[in-house]
């Protein structure tokens, strides 16, 4: 009886673990060569072409792709550092801290610009700005806001129209949301004023960009703030109804990053995957790219790309994070 209970518990927890993945997919399952396990926060649909082109070139290699949230990517890797070979995430701060803490392997053979590399371990391969995405229908007859200030004014002007119809990341759950929020707060006080306005309108909080764009298309929300414009752009069927606005006052651009884990057993295959990823995606040489390529350094300066530097660890400090979340909750959760 006791054994049975234990067995059931084990099975249940295994199922639970399995269910926790947003998505899993194995590419080139028939291959007998190296097996690469990629843990990622990027939706399978957006990342699949990169893996497909890789297994086309390396038909021996089998690739398993696990998708979960940015915060979960960080948590799982810290729990089981040897369960994955490659880590891909949009939360630059969490990625940099993982590398700083020694979870990454240095790849001396990879050539990549200095500003898009950290410790020859962490490699940036996209540049994706945080955008305001609106449902055009909600702004019919009204000017479309181009800056945060104009968005604040638009929301204040028609509070009834936007009540319960604004959305943004739940920074407590989402690593990327937290990164955008903290970088936003560094840049200007406008962020806190906007959050206050959104909080008063009964803001809806989301875990992921994809969900926000879903709700925008259905009209459940009219405005999403700090969402990844790239996700909206990747869905051409909704482009007509949605407008992606890059705030012209101070746009914040995130770079999606990848690294090979220190504990990997497939170092050379993992390194060649990173090389492939950078060659096809980073500078837009590949075909059918669904993610925006890395911009040149000049453009990166212009777009206020978050730099890869140890300062990214500042807001991950427990005391600092506690303080920031307290302020955020005070502003957003109003009754």
């Amino acid at each position: 009886m006791r054994i049975l209970t234990t067995l059931v518990l084990i099975l249940w927890s295994a199922c639970a673990t399995a269910q926790e993945w947003e998505d899993t997919q194995v590419f080139n399952d028939a291959a007998t060569g190296p097996f690469l396990r990629i843990i990622s926060s990027t939706d399978t649909a957006l990342f699949a072409p990169l893996i497909t082109s890789f297994v086309d070139e390396n038909p021996n290699t089998r690739v398993a792709y696990f998708v979960t949230s940015t915060a979960d990517v960080d948590r799982r890797l810290r729990d089981t550092p040897d369960a994955f070979d490659i880590v891909v995430s949009s939360a630059m701060d969490l990625q940099l801290k993982l590398v700083n803490d020694g979870f990454a392997r240095q790849l001396p053979g990879i050539e990549h610009p200095d500003w898009a590399t950290w410790r020859q371990s962490l490699f940036a391969f996209t540049a994706e700005p945080a955008a305001i995405v609106i449902n055009r229908a909600a702004f019919a007859g009204a000017p479309i806001p181009a800056t945060r200030q104009e968005l604040i004014e638009a929301l204040r002007d028609r509070p009834t129209a936007f009540r319960d119809k604004v959305g943004t990341y739940d920074v407590r759950q989402s690593g990327l949301g937290y990164l955008f929020a903290t970088q936003d707060s560094r840049a200007s006080d406008t962020y806190w004023r906007l959050m206050e306005v959104m909080g008063r309108l009964g803001v809806r909080l989301y875990c992921c960009s994809g969900d926000m764009i879903d709700d925008l298309t259905t009209g459940k929300i009219a405005v999403a703030y700090n969402v990844l414009g790239s996700y909206a752009a990747a869905r051409p069927e909704v482009n007509d109804s949605l407008a992606v606005i890059l705030p012209s006052d101070f746009p914040i651009t995130m770079m999606r990053t990848a690294f090979v884990t220190a504990a990997t057993a497939e170092a050379s295959a993992a390194e060649s995957f990173i090389a492939h990823l950078l060659a096809t995606q980073a500078f837009g040489q590949g075909e059918n790219l669904l993610l925006p390529p890395l911009t040149s350094e000049d453009a990166a300066e212009d777009r206020a790309t978050i730099p890869l530097e140890p300062a990214l660890m500042t807001f991950l400090d427990a005391l600092k994070r506690r303080r920031f979340l307290a302020a955020w909750e005070d502003t957003m959760i109003q009754n």
Binding site: R186, E309, P310, A311, L312, M313, T314, D317, L319, K320, R323
Partner: peptide, 12 residues
């Protein structure tokens, strides 16, 4: 302790 961003930034 509200660690300033510059504290770590200067260690680049």
């Amino acid at each position: 302790i509200d660690i300033p961003y510059a504290a770590f930034s200067m260690l680049s």
